[in-house]
Simulated assay, not measured.
Amino acid sequence: MIPLEILEKYDAVRRLYKKSEVIFDKDKLATHYYQIISGVVKMNNFNDEDREFIQGFFYAKHCFGEPPLFLNRTYPANAEAIEDSELICISKTNFLKLISENPSVSIMMIENLAQRLHYKSVMAAEISTQDSEHRLLQLFDYSIAYFNFKKEEDGYHIDLTRQQMGDLTGLRVETVIRTIKTLEKKGELKIVNRKVYR
């Protein structure tokens, strides 16, 4: 995303987060821009029944949690490291200064936000109108493109747990497992050593 040397010119700070450590909580005022150097971060919400809904996963070179910085609003979700992660963060004031002084970075940010908005629109339509097979295939295909999953001998490895697949699509884990088996029978994907390949 934003080159580290540019971030460092605007007093960015590197921080280490342990697995399961919370980076920020839902409803807290957004104060920093975060970008991942290494590791994985998830953003999530919980409903009244304490069921988790995952908004997304973010990997090395991805940023997360920045939309509220432009709106002076609170975070709409929690952010948590799902493995030991190194992040670089910059204060809101310095981030907005960086954006205004670097037009090429502004364009990158707009493209990134547009990509996420597109994903949310596609998945919202899938969750509300489509069956489980269609939802999972849409998630897999989008994940291959957006997360740059690498093609292996058996296809693209969908590096998500069954629980994560369910949380991203609004499906129960049992439904995810059944649907994956059905899709394998139809030749839409492969299962090799419990790993899913598209």
Rank of each mutant, 00 (worst) to 15 (best):
L96M: 15
D50V: 04
F64D: 01
P103Y: 13
K28H: 08
A79I: 12
I36Y: 02
N78M: 07
H118K: 12
A81V: 03
I6M: 12
S85R: 04
E52D: 02
E83G: 01
P68A: 06
D27N: 14
K19M: 08
D84W: 00
N45A: 03
A77N: 08
V22P: 00
L98R: 04
N45Q: 09
A77T: 08
Q115S: 13
N102L: 03
L16K: 13
E52H: 01
M109E: 13
Q115D: 13
N47A: 04
T74D: 11
E80L: 05
S104I: 06
I110L: 15
I36C: 05
P76I: 07
K28V: 11
I90D: 10
N72L: 06
R73S: 13
Q115M: 12
N112E: 10
G65W: 08
N47P: 00
H118V: 02
Y33T: 04
H32N: 15
A30I: 07
L87Y: 03
L7F: 05
T93C: 00
E86L: 09
R14F: 09
K42V: 07
G56F: 03
F64A: 06
K97T: 11
P103C: 06
A12M: 09
I37V: 14
N94T: 02
D84V: 01
E5Q: 11
G39T: 06
L87I: 14
L96T: 08
I90K: 05
L98Q: 05
Y17Q: 13
D27E: 11
I6A: 11
H118E: 11
E83M: 14
T31R: 12
H62Q: 09
F95Y: 15
H62I: 00
I54E: 06
G56I: 09
S20L: 08
A81T: 02
S100W: 03
F95Q: 10
R73W: 03
S91Y: 01
I6F: 06
V41H: 02
A79F: 10
E80F: 00
K19N: 12
D84H: 02
E111G: 03
N45M: 09
L7Y: 05
E8R: 14
N94F: 04
F24V: 06
F57P: 01
K92Q: 15
V41L: 07
S85C: 06
N44T: 13
R15T: 14
N72F: 08
I6P: 04
D27T: 01
Y119H: 13
E21Q: 15
K97Q: 13
E5H: 14
L98A: 07
F46G: 00
C63W: 05
R73L: 13
I6H: 06
R15S: 14
N94W: 01
Y34W: 09
Y59H: 14
E5I: 03
Y34M: 07
R15V: 12
N45L: 13
K120Y: 15
K19P: 00
D27W: 02
R14A: 02
E5T: 08
P76D: 06
D48I: 10
N47Q: 04
P3N: 10
P103F: 12
M108C: 07
I6T: 15
R51D: 12
A12S: 15
Y119Q: 10
K92G: 08
L69T: 02
E8Y: 05
R14E: 15
P103R: 11
I54V: 15
E49W: 00
E83R: 10
K92C: 04
T31K: 15
